[in-house]
Design a protein around this nucleic acid. Sequence first.
DNA 1: AGAAAATTAGACACTCTTGTCTAATTTGTC
DNA 2: GACAAATTAGACAAGAGTGTCTAATTTTCT
Lengths: 226, 226
Amino acid sequence: MSQTIAADILPPRGHEAKRVAIVDAAMAVFCREGFAGANIDLIAAEAGVSRQTVYNHHGDKEKLFVAVVHELTERCNAGIFATLATFPDQPKDIEADLVAYAERMNRNCICSRDGKFLRKLIQTEGERYPELFAEWRENGPGTTLPALAARFARLAFAGHLTIDDPDVTARHFIALINAELQIEFMMGIQPSQEEVLQSATNGVRTFLRAYGARQPASRQRETALA
Amino acid sequence: MSQTIAADILPPRGHEAKRVAIVDAAMAVFCREGFAGANIDLIAAEAGVSRQTVYNHHGDKEKLFVAVVHELTERCNAGIFATLATFPDQPKDIEADLVAYAERMNRNCICSRDGKFLRKLIQTEGERYPELFAEWRENGPGTTLPALAARFARLAFAGHLTIDDPDVTARHFIALINAELQIEFMMGIQPSQEEVLQSATNGVRTFLRAYGARQPASRQRETALA
DNA sequence: AGAAAATTAGACACTCTTGTCTAATTTGTC
DNA sequence: GACAAATTAGACAAGAGTGTCTAATTTTCT
């Protein structure tokens, strides 16, 4: 009896390893070829596994695709939240701090392997399976954009920025730090470290020209009260 | 002899009409389903034509796809240049004029049916067939971004703007006026007129906070000379 | 009306892919 | 070493899609 329970609860180590290998390989193939163009034989070969094992683990192609989207969504959201936690709430040099943050954002969330894959899947299959990406919409932009907006509102409250609408500010921040990477994103090209940094630097400079404090942070609160 | 020449040079009216209908239908299906998922029977049905006629006109699936990309690229570039010609070179109210221009840009080039289709094809197939979109890269962003940058440089020279790098300015302009439409673009959703206008309005406001003239345009030239 | 060209429906061979099945082999556990 | 579970290769049926061919029909031009 006890061994039956153990077998149910704790699958062999190699088992889970193969499941992950299959999902990882499927990720790459689905992203490269699209759902219709993806080939189970190719996925199996890329995972170093027989085709039958793919079916044993995931049932059929559609279920495998759902598993891929789910895994990717979780990984990307985790990365975004981890990066959000490094937001410079008490900046010493606001320009340098925001550039560093923007570069982390680009590198870890948007230009990462997972970020690129998720973006591509949303672009290619989002229109056909909108409910599949509902989880992403809610826990992704739906949660992180307001969170980012709150950080900017706090910076404004502390006198480091001058903003009207924090949500618009957050969207403009994201748009500006990626402004020079748009063509690479569309074509699926991985931008170089230098390009990422350049885009972040120029974006933050423009961001601060628009939203920077009009006077030194220390004096702004007094003036606002007067 | 003369009728032979006429037949060679001037194909029957219905003939060309069907060719266009086929390309239009193929556009929609390739964009919706991707190259691998697209079905010639479906394209023929959507064009109101028999499958054999599709093969008569375009040879095979791949050639049809190339024809679609080519047609789409030409149409979109034509639209962009037409819109670029309406740039406000002598603005009366720079904010209102730029908002109107931004809205035209979004509506005619980016959110249009053709714009959406081309974007989707680049996203889904650009990685696999990069040479196919070389024409777009050169005549599209490669030509229009510098052209837009030149317009901004001219506005700066006339004292309406304060800019460092015109190319960066142009990219930031595009990024800002689309900042609030990113999720719709990714999911392939058509934004409403109001959303387009809203994004353009907020984007131009931020753009001018960053790049607007620091003093009235009339006085700036004198100061620069002093 | 009559000739030439284009279009159509349908059948067809061929290829590719999915998902299932089976028997043999490997892996992991006790 | 023995037993159970997982994995593997290979064959297989079923279905879908591409591209070709043919004969009949329609359209177009003169």
